[in-house]
Nucleic acid binder design. Structure first.
Lengths: 197, 197
DNA sequence: GTCTATAGACGGATAGAC
DNA sequence: GTCTATCCGTCTATAGAC
C-alpha cells in the first residue's frame, strides 16, 4: 500500500502542532477566559515551551481570533449539514433542527464555540473586529430560518426579537447545563413548545 | 435647621469612598471583565492610589464579591418591589412584570447586575462560592413565579426549563441590546407572546 | 520546529509615613 | 483615610542557539 506523494494526506508536523494548540487554547479559553489563559500553561499542556507557540501564531490575539472564528464555523457547518439532510421539512421543523444542533454542538462537541460565546465580550477590539464577518454570516442563517418560520420580512422586529430570544435561551445553557442531570432533547422540546402557532 | 446628631444621615467619608469604589468597579467589571480590571486604573478613576483601596477592601476578590453580590440584590429588590405593588394580578402578569423589571434593571440601571452576569463564569472559585446563597435566593423567586404560572410542582423539569429559557433570553440582551435602536417594552412583549396558554 | 534566556511591562498586595 | 515606595510574581513577546 504505497503512499500517495502527489496528494499527501498525512499532516505535517507543524499542522498537527497547530491543531493541538488550537484545541487546548479553546478549552482553556472556555474555562478560564481570554486574559487568564496564560501562554506558559497552554504551551505546557501542549507539550512545548511558551516561546515555541510563536512559530505557529503571531500573537495571543491571533490565536484567540482563530479559536473563536472556528467556534462559529463549527456550529454553522453542523447546522447547515443537518438542514441539508432534511430539505423537505417545514420551516418550523427546520428551525427546531437548527436549535437542536446548535445547542448540541455547544454543549458536547465544541470547546471552540463555547469559548467564542464566553470570551467575546472581553476580547480586545482588534479580535472582535476580525470576527464580525463570520458572526454576521451565522446570524443571517438564523434570520433566514426565522423569516421563513414567521413569514415576515427579514427586517421585521419580530424576527430579530425571536432570534435573540432563541439564541439567548440556547447559549445561556452554558451557564447551567449539567449533562449528568439535564437532557438536551427535553430542553429543546420545551423550547419548541414555546414557538408560536 | 439643626443637624440630628443622634441619627446622623450624612455618610462618613469612608462610606462614600466605599460606594464610589464599588460603582467604578462594577462599571469596569462589566466592561473589561474581572481579571482585566486593574486596581491601579480603578483607583485612578475613583481619585485615589491603588494602595488606598485596601483600607476599604481586603482584596480584589473581596471587592468583586461585593460588587457581584449587590448585582443580584439590586435586581431582586427591584423585582420584589414591583411585584408587591401588584398583589392581585394573575400569575401570568406577575411573571411578565418580573421579566420586565429584570431586563430593565439589567440594561439601564445597574452595572452591578451586568457585571455579575458577565464575570461569574471566570471569577475565582472562592468568589463564586460566596455568591451561591444570593443566587439561590433569586433563583427561588423565579421558580415560585413559574410554578404558579405553570401550575406545576417546583421540582418539575418544565419549571426549570422555562426558568432557564426566560433568564437566558433576558440576560443575553447584554450582548445585543442597543438602546438607540431597541426597545425594552417591545422585546418583553415579544417574549410574553411566547409564553404558553 | 523547538529550545533557552531574557527583556520589558504590569499585576496584586504590604509597610509605614503623614 | 490616603499616600509613597516597593516587593515579588506573572505576563507576552523576542532573539538567537540548536
Amino acid at each position: 500500500m504505497p503512499a500517495t506523494p502527489t496528494k499527501p494526506r498525512q499532516k505535517t508536523k507543524a499542522a498537527t502542532a497547530r491543531q493541538d494548540i488550537l484545541a487546548v487554547a479553546a478549552r482553556k479559553m472556555r474555562q478560564t477566559g481570554y486574559s487568564d489563559m496564560s501562554l506558559r500553561d497552554l504551551a505546557t499542556e501542549v507539550g512545548m515551551k511558551a516561546g515555541s507557540l510563536y512559530y505557529h501564531f503571531a500573537s495571543k490575539d491571533a490565536l484567540a481570533t482563530e479559536v473563536m472564528c472556528l467556534g462559529v464555523e463549527v456550529v454553522q457547518q453542523a447546522v447547515q449539514t443537518a438542514l441539508a439532510k432534511q430539505p423537505d421539512s417545514t420551516a418550523r421543523d427546520r428551525l427546531i433542527i437548527a436549535m437542536h444542533v446548535h445547542i448540541e454542538t455547544l454543549l458536547s462537541e465544541s470547546d471552540f464555540s463555547s469559548a467564542h460565546i464566553r470570551c467575546y465580550p472581553f476580547v480586545p477590539d482588534t479580535v472582535r473586529n476580525e470576527l464580525t464577518t463570520v458572526r454576521k454570516s451565522y446570524d443571517k442563517d438564523w434570520n433566514d430560518l426565522i423569516c421563513a418560520f414567521l413569514d415576515k420580512p427579514a427586517e421585521a422586529a419580530e424576527v430579530r426579537h425571536l432570534r435573540h430570544a432563541l439564541l439567548g435561551a440556547l447559549n445561556w445553557s452554558l451557564e447551567w447545563f449539567d449533562p449528568s442531570r439535564d437532557d438536551i432533547n427535553a430542553y429543546v422540546k420545551s423550547l419548541a413548545h414555546l414557538l408560536p402557532e
